[in-house]
Design a protein around this nucleic acid. Sequence first.
DNA 1: CTGAAAGCGCTTACAG
DNA 2: CTGAAAGCGCTTACAG
Lengths: 332, 332
Amino acid sequence: MKTIRDVAKNAGVSPATVSRVLNNKGYVSEEKKKRIEKVIQEMGFEPNQVARGLAKKTSNTLALIVSDITNPFFPELAKGAEYIARSHGYSLLLGNTKGVDNESNDYIKILMNKYIDGVIIATHDIDSQLLEKHRETPMVILEMENEIENACTIKVDNIQGSVTATEHLISVGCKKIAHIYGPLYDQTAKERLKGYQEVIRAHDEYKELTVPGDFTIDGGISAVRELLDEHPDIDGLFAGNDLMAVGVIKELSRLKIRVPEDIAVCGFDGIYLTKVFSPEITTIEQPIYEMGELAAEKLIDRIKNPHLNSEHIELKTKLVIRQSSNRNKLSL
Amino acid sequence: MKTIRDVAKNAGVSPATVSRVLNNKGYVSEEKKKRIEKVIQEMGFEPNQVARGLAKKTSNTLALIVSDITNPFFPELAKGAEYIARSHGYSLLLGNTKGVDNESNDYIKILMNKYIDGVIIATHDIDSQLLEKHRETPMVILEMENEIENACTIKVDNIQGSVTATEHLISVGCKKIAHIYGPLYDQTAKERLKGYQEVIRAHDEYKELTVPGDFTIDGGISAVRELLDEHPDIDGLFAGNDLMAVGVIKELSRLKIRVPEDIAVCGFDGIYLTKVFSPEITTIEQPIYEMGELAAEKLIDRIKNPHLNSEHIELKTKLVIRQSSNRNKLSL
DNA sequence: CTGAAAGCGCTTACAG
DNA sequence: CTGAAAGCGCTTACAG
């Protein structure tokens, strides 16, 4: 490996001067600057990031902590974040918290010892005390309004999205609309439930029909069974997330209940699967890839300017109508 | 941050001695060792990985280069690799090559400058000259038999898998079996095509019916259209990968062609989607998660012992029969 | 504008 | 068995 000394020697200057042009910092005469840049070019010199890291307490790497990269929501997020990170000269470290025996506690410690410059947290199973403890680390937190100081929070307007979903089912002619909500310790689940309730309560002719789910496909399957036991006559179903919507539709198809003719279904999230599934699934789309990009951008802002205040960003969702609720030809 | 000096001071020894117990290397008297360990405990000292990295030319991090983490094959792989990496004290860096303007060239350079200890390559769009150039770096390469010296290669027996798939369709009563193959610069695509051909050629009553695809869902859709134009009477379809199988089934359902009654379909890969899709898709399952684990294990072996020879590992596939080919009740 | 020197926090021959 | 010293490759006051 070539070092900054080699460059200095070849250019007839000191390492300090080379460092100055590398970092574009401090004064260097135009002439030497040109010369040094030329030598760097010729030698194909690349500064050693580890040495630089040690000197600057920096690593030029970001971490993305997700609960489970296997959940289709996260790859898209990761892709957006990795893209931006790389464009700015950062690398992206990936961490899965799910199924980790050692507490995720260790996780952040590891990151600290590596001088990770900042972390994007996209999992709910993280101890907020822990986050509190690492308040000096630049962070952006996804889908979780948190009271962490100094952090940036990015989420979607779940209530609005869920209002839109419910109203959509009404507009499509559904008379008995049920909702499968996610685990209530999850803030998004709570908000989505709330949006559904708001709409239903605003309409006298509709009744609240809710049943709990766990945000998984299997959870969707059991929830819809439970629902049909009690209310075999529902004709609209708003699932708290897309994964459950998939489970719902699978189970309905097994039961020979037609979607959307007998029951119209709408999910939430806008994961890839909804586009791909058959029937294609109506959903409230979050800008997942963009959230990944935005998270990385905001994180990098915070790294460059550590004194930024807390910031809470709320993004818009978008109703995407697909086959699973497309009853246009049926509604009166 | 506490440093090794602080520990040394508190334990009344030199930093060198602390380092020896930290690395479990060189002689340290039992008594001092105990004492030092106690102090480390009490102080909650954790060695700074960057400083260690600089001294040892090591980073305790692995990189996983995929073409597109959004392709459902990769998250599963990544999860397995990350799990093993972490268990051994390594972190996992993620890189997507797809849609990268700067050549993936840069990618490896970056890794080198960070003292990345080893890399798992799970993409085909990587320059083999480039790999050649970095022959000193421990590498494991997935799904691509490569002539890189010193590397470990992990793949699946595609030919055998594809023989199994084709024979399965025969056993289920199909008389006209077509195959959609992937892009032939991709070794897996070539091998899978070959397996299909072997079986068909061994049976006089069957005819080879193939059409090219591109390993994407949309590719599956167009391929099946093309196929049906020319051969409307096919009753079995082996898609070169699961993503194309999904496209095929979507399109067939749109055309009101029943799966498996009219056409039985089998994919290849065993991605999560096949279990989730409706109808569930018969596939030749690769042990994806395990391949991720194995890749990380082998890589770590190579890091610890840089003089290991090339190694080519071939894993078995498994036929998983699901609804899309389940004609048991129909076959004579 | 530029260089010598000290420092980032650890590791590792080397001498004892 | 142990410590002082040099080194990993860069950065950054400091003095000039």
